[in-house]
């Protein structure tokens, strides 16, 4: 029983990060029909630019409180990621708006490699230790179940950000313009919407969420690395597909469900396979789910329409 509870808790933590990143995938897909495979790299850039900021500040002013350091890291990471996302849309994807759908997809993979390589040049090939600014020492709310302050922060911050995003999209004039543009670019323009601006904004918003996700991810595992965005990026993409790509609620649900399945699966995989597979095989779950969803329910958990765009 404790194991199950513990794994559910772990799943919620990882799932929140997936959900934040999945929102970026799903928003861009909703408005452009594009799978932005470079989105995972934005998470990596968020983590590494925060790391650089925090390390530099610790060198100059070691007496600063940890939370302030973390805040400063975020304050640099968020605009950096927004700029990167703005540039990738402006320089790469915008030119391919009318192109056959394979072209932007391949380009997205290219942008992903480009960002990883640039990050490798800037931050080197080594694993960096990400400072533990929020304690990772677990507390025991229930006998036998552990959760650390950093994990609690991840769940709380993710929930707040998701609430803010959903409010923005469903309750504001800007969100209305985003939804209108997602449905029909041409008619949105006829309403006076600057469609290019709304698309750029969609990229930038997704990137801000990914930046926060990157910092949380690195804080949780205590490590940052130029290739750290790949796996969570792929998992978040899976989460978006699982929930129904293009659907905001779906991305959040998909992220949480995927996190739970992974964590609970990892907790029991050894029992189920009689010791043949251990918990380091937990990545299997995400991709079995991806395959199964694509085969049996391509519209995902909450999606209704099968889009003709890839």
């Amino acid at each position: 029983m404790e194991t199950l509870l513990q794994q559910i808790l772990n799943g919620l933590v990882v799932g929140s990060v997936y959900a934040l990143v999945a929102l970026g995938y799903t928003m861009v897909y909703g408005i452009l029909g594009l799978i932005n495979f470079a989105h995972g790299e934005v998470l990596m850039i968020g983590a590494l630019s925060a790391l650089t900021t925090i390390t530099a500040l610790m060198g100059v002013a070691p007496e600063l409180p940890p939370l302030m350091l973390l805040g400063a890291g975020l304050l640099v990471a968020i605009p950096t990621c927004m700029t990167v996302a703005f540039l990738m849309e402006r320089l790469a994807y915008r030119r391919l708006r009318g192109a056959p759908r394979l072209a932007p997809l391949i380009t997205a993979i290219g942008v992903s490699f480009l960002l990883q390589t640039v990050a490798m040049i800037v931050w080197g090939r080594n694993y960096h230790t990400f400072p533990q600014l929020i304690s990772t020492t677990p507390i025991q709310p229930i006998e036998g179940v552990f959760i650390s302050p950093v994990q609690i922060s991840i769940i709380v911050v993710s929930a707040l950000l998701m609430f803010a995003l959903v409010t923005l999209v469903n309750r504001t004039r800007l969100g209305r313009a985003m939804r209108a543009t997602a449905e029909n670019h041409r008619v949105a323009a006829l309403m006076g919407v600057d469609v290019n601006r709304i698309i750029a904004l969609t990229f930038v918003l997704g990137a801000a969420l990914a930046a926060v996700a990157g910092v949380m991810f690195a804080s949780n595992y205590g490590i940052a690395h130029y290739a750290m965005g790949f796996m969570p990026g792929l998992k978040a993409f899976t989460a978006a597909v699982l929930g129904g790509i293009g659907n905001l609620a779906g991305a959040m649900l998909g992220g949480i469900v995927l996190g739970l399945v992974e964590a609970v699966g990892a907790g029991y995989i050894e029992d189920f396979t009689f010791g043949f597979l251990n918990s380091s095989y937990q990545d299997i779950f995400a991709f079995v789910i991806l395959g199964a969803v694509l085969i049996f329910r391509p519209t995902g958990l909450l999606g209704e329409r099968v889009s003709d765009r890839a």
Binding site: R173, R176, A177, R179, A180, E183, N184, R186, V187, A188, A189, L190, M191, G192, V193, D194, V195
Partner: peptide, 29 residues
């Protein structure tokens, strides 16, 4: 999108309703 500001509005062929938005949201657009 700038021509609308000058006062030129088009009701497009096929109506161009935002089908996933509510009637009120369409009007607000």
């Amino acid at each position: 999108h700038k021509r609308l500001k000058l006062g030129i509005a088009l009701v497009p062929e096929g109506r161009g309703i935002f089908t996933r938005l509510t009637v009120e949201e369409n009007l607000r657009m």
